[in-house]
Design a protein around this nucleic acid. Structure first.
Lengths: 257, 257
DNA sequence: CAGTGGTCTAGACCACAAG
DNA sequence: TTGTGGTCTAGACCACTGG
């Protein structure tokens, strides 16, 4: 936080797009959509300032109160951040936190701050099996980047996982060194597709020969099977992963609100 | 939905409590707190209408816009519901949905609407073991109601679980027939303590002799261990449960946003 | 200092509900 | 018709930021 870009922009960058006073949909809602559009189109980028209330009110020819209402809701939705005296900024997904949110293989408080190591066992391009194709909404002959890796904390293998990424979105990703990096920040900064939400399916199981070998377990030991689909803007799936975590260390914590 | 009580109330029931214009905390925030207090104190009850914008504005001696802002935020927080032309109502936690949220033993779409049967194996009052006491924040000699039950869908046992409830809050609960009921609506309607959120810990394991017997599995088959603490107003824990679900049917789905 | 967002006011007009 | 909430306006005053 606190390294927000200065609010300088080209002056024609203010509003763009028009509201329709005859429409049944409220002005503040139309304005929300216009602003959202400019954020998802990356005209206004993460961390940057957007025009001030007054500028927006002028550009859309509505009162300041109406703009305030639109902005307040966008703040609530986590799309914007407002700072008194400074301006309104496009929110920056906080990857320190989002990492914590997505990766929660029951580590101790202490270990939670460690970025797990990652040993890549395979990395190749292929036409994925049907369930993966469906999850990523790929056309029948679209290719995917498939990566198999083992994730370790303090040299202890915790999880073995198969990842699939749409090749169209992630050209060249298969050649990156990901042994010491987190993937989601890379998706965001290098490929312009931040992970905004994800869904997971968890099921208990017993170690297969392959999993036992990768995790240093005996065949039949308890493991957690996790499938995840991660989504970016417009609920577009950009990652499918299938993980097997060792049961003695894998403890998954959730808050349901 | 749609069976909201009529908006009749005693006239002195309007505002109550005063705002402090000298305070640094904004008026609309003070008003939010006053309204919340009257809801949590059950002066204004679930489904009932609260005073209108104008009445509240008069009672607190602020402008309608300020009341509107307070009410809008409370709607956002799920505490109130507003209906144009009708009034503002205290929200009623939707248990059809909250049930879906808390109970997600990977049932098929079809089965999701079934209320699982429940066979109580034991129900007694005791001083709970230390971890449970800590979870429920009980004093050393406080008692708890301990219930062991098996939950079934279509006669198939899915989960065996141990429940602990603070006896102080749930006097007489141990004598209820819960074989065909959901517990959370009972906590709410009979004991005034709705479950507002919960946290869970999931870990894979293998069936113990006890679990195998209860679930019709073989010892060593995969199972899911789930611990849950459920909270009511003021983040007060009112239920601790430890469940063992059969691995072949237990599929846990989560959306992370 | 000027510019930003945060709060608050006192209205207006509207759509909707219910008698 | 009356009363409700939903939208919108055009201000006011304030606290905070940065030059």
């Amino acid at each position: 936080m606190e390294e927000l870009h200065p609010p300088y922009r080209a002056p024609q960058d203010t509003g763009r797009g028009h509201v329709d006073r005859g429409d049944v949909v409220p002005l503040y809602h139309q304005i929300k959509e216009l602003i959202k559009r400019r954020v998802t189109d990356r005209v206004w980028r993460q961390g940057e300032a957007i025009p001030s209330e007054n500028e927006l009110a002028g550009a859309y020819d509505v009162s300041v109160g109406t703009v305030k209402k639109a902005l307040a809701e966008l703040v609530h939705e986590g799309i914007l951040i407002r700072r008194q005296g400074k301006g309104t900024f496009v929110a920056r997904p906080d990857f320190q936190r989002s990492f914590m949110r997505f990766f929660r293989y029951g580590l101790s408080r202490d270990e939670e701050r460690i970025v797990p190591g990652s040993k890549v066992l395979a990395s190749r391009i292929l036409v994925p099996p049907q369930p993966v194709r469906a999850a990523l909404r790929l056309a029948p002959r679209d290719r995917a980047i498939a990566i198999t890796r083992v994730r370790t904390v303090r040299e202890v293998p915790l999880v073995v996982e198969d990842l699939y990424l749409p090749q169209k979105t992630f050209r060249g990703f298969e050649r990156r060194d990901i042994s010491r990096a987190l993937l989601y920040p890379i998706y965001d900064s290098e490929y312009g597709t931040p992970v905004l939400w994800a869904e997971e399916w968890l099921q208990p199981g017993v170690a297969s020969k392959r999993a036992a070998q990768a995790l240093g377990l005996a065949v039949g030991d308890p493991v957690m099977h996790v499938e995840r689909i991660a989504y970016t803007f417009g609920d577009r799936p950009i990652e499918y992963r299938k993980s097997v975590g060792r049961g003695d260390r894998y403890r998954y914590h959730i808050e349901i609100r």
